[in-house]
Structure formats: C-alpha cells, structure tokens
C-alpha cells in the first residue's frame, strides 16, 4: 500500500483534471460564457470606435491614440477575467453534492482542493482572452509591444482571473450555497465599471475618478492599455502586476481559510 498521501502537485493535477472532465462533459453550459466577452468587444468597437478611433486624432478625445480597439481590448480581457468566478460554482457543486466532504475525509491538502477550481477558472480566462485577442487582431488591434505584448496581456488575464476565481471560491465556501455565490458575483459589476472602462481616469467625473483609484481593476486595465498602446511602460505595468498579484494572494488565502471552517457549520 502507498504512504497514503499523494504529493501536492499530483493532488492538484488530479483534482484539476477531474474538474476539466466535468467542464468538457457539459459544453453547452460553458459556451455562452466563452463568447460573451468577445461579443461585447464587437459591440464596444461598433458603438464607440467611430467617435474615439481614427476620427478623434488631433482632438481632445484622442486617448486611444487613433486605435480604439487597442483601448477597449483591455476591458474585454478584464471582463473575460470575471469568468474566473465560475470557479465558485464548481466548488459549490462539490459542497452541495457532498464531494467536498469526501475530499475532506482524505489526506488531501486544503490548498489543492481550493486551487483546483481556481486553476480551471484561470484556464477558462486564458481561453476566452485568447479568443478575444484573436478577434481583436482581426478587427484592428495593433499592440505597441508586438506579439510579446499579446502574451503579456494573456498573463494579466490569467493573474486577474485567478484573483476573481479566489474571490468567487471564498464567497462560495463561506456561503455554502449557489444563491450565496450568485449574490457575491454582484461585486463584479462595480469592479468592472467603477474604473476607467470607457475613458481614461483623467476624463472621469470627480467622484468616479476617486472611487476608481481605490478599485484594483483600474490598475490592471491601465497596465494592459499601457502594453497595447504605449509599449513597455513599467511605471504603469508594475502597479497592475503588484495589485493583481496581491489580489490573487489575498483571495486564495481567504478561500483556504474559509474551507477550513466549512464543516463546522454542521
């Protein structure tokens, strides 16, 4: 018989593979999430591209520097990152079905139980973000940093997706119900829109500009915009990286601490 404990990364790999099988075996429930951000990219570009695109060059509205797709693409990437929140629903399914309890009775690290749905959430984000970048490049995206800029943007999407997945997992474990997880997802709207979503921070009204400064999404959007529009501007990219990393770490720690208490609810 074995020593009764798989190494951590084996545990994580097995649990992630199991969730991946679940995702693959019900494709219809995943498809809408996959295309929704790409759909909004078309809408944003169609509705605002004429006003803030090439025709704005030389005017005070030229914050996209002539390419509105470059400007709006980060919003779609961040919006896609919110789909990391599906991770919470994976874990709710496991709690409600009793699978979570089965794992708790086995010598498995709580971190791997919590990380597996987060990894799946982040993989979803990567796939969505790749699709968005592909569409973006077809409709006119032209990163100042070239192809490596695309990879950096994907990295940001993954990091931010991981953070939101952690938040979603923590909220789900804390509430222990799909209703609770659904209610917690309301947070995503202010996170996305109390930010320089459609115009730069300087162009926002006073109260919104102040609120946006406290929203971590702001720094991630600005970092991705920096990569696409200006190049490797590290004074913009670094704050985004730090904020995204801290957010992911905090939400992961919160999710694990919530998981430790889940059974005490009886």
């Amino acid at each position: 018989m074995s020593d009764h404990q798989a190494p951590f990364f084996t545990q994580l790999g097995i649990l992630t593979k199991r969730l991946l099988l679940r995702v693959v075996r019900r494709p219809l429930s995943e498809l809408p999430n996959l295309i929704i951000s790409a759909f909004f990219l078309f809408i944003y570009d169609g509705a605002l591209g004429r006003v803030f695109g090439a025709s704005a060059v030389g005017t005070s509205l030229d914050f996209a520097q002539g390419n509105f797709v470059n400007f709006i693409l980060p919003v779609s990437i961040v919006s896609a990152s919110l789909s990391g929140s599906a991770s919470g629903f994976y874990i709710i399914e496991d709690i409600e079905s009793g699978v979570f309890k089965r794992y708790q009775g086995m010598p498995i690290s709580k971190w791997s139980i919590i990380l597996a749905p987060m990894v799946i959430g982040a993989i979803r984000v990567l796939i969505q973000a790749s699709l968005i970048l592909l569409i973006g490049s077809f409709i006119g995206a032209d990163p100042a940093t070239g192809f490596s800029g695309y990879l950096a943007v994907l990295g940001f999407g993954f990091l931010w997706g991981l953070g939101f997945a952690g938040y979603s997992v923590a909220a789900s474990v804390k509430s222990g119900s799909s209703q609770g997880a659904q209610a917690a997802s309301f947070f995503f709207f202010p996170a996305l829109f109390i930010a320089p979503t459609f115009v730069p921070r300087e162009a926002l009204k006073g109260w919104l500009s102040t609120a946006a400064a406290f929203n971590p999404t702001t720094y991630v959007i600005e970092a991705i915009r920096g990569i696409l529009i200006e190049g490797w501007v590290f004074n913009v990219i670094l704050p985004g990286l730090i904020v995204g990393g801290i957010f992911a770490l905090i939400t992961l720690a919160y999710a694990v601490s919530s998981a430790k208490k889940v059974n005490e609810k009886g």
Binding site: A6, R18, R26, M106
Partner: peptide
Amino acid sequence: GIDLLLTARELLYTTGRLW
C-alpha cells in the same frame, strides 16, 4: 457525494491516486 459526470472507473482511479 459522488461526481455524477464521471465514470466509476475514473472515480476509483482518481481516488486511488489521491490516496
């Protein structure tokens, strides 16, 4: 609970690996 989307073979194998 048991994961209803997986097969018995997958579940037993996965559980064995986790042990």
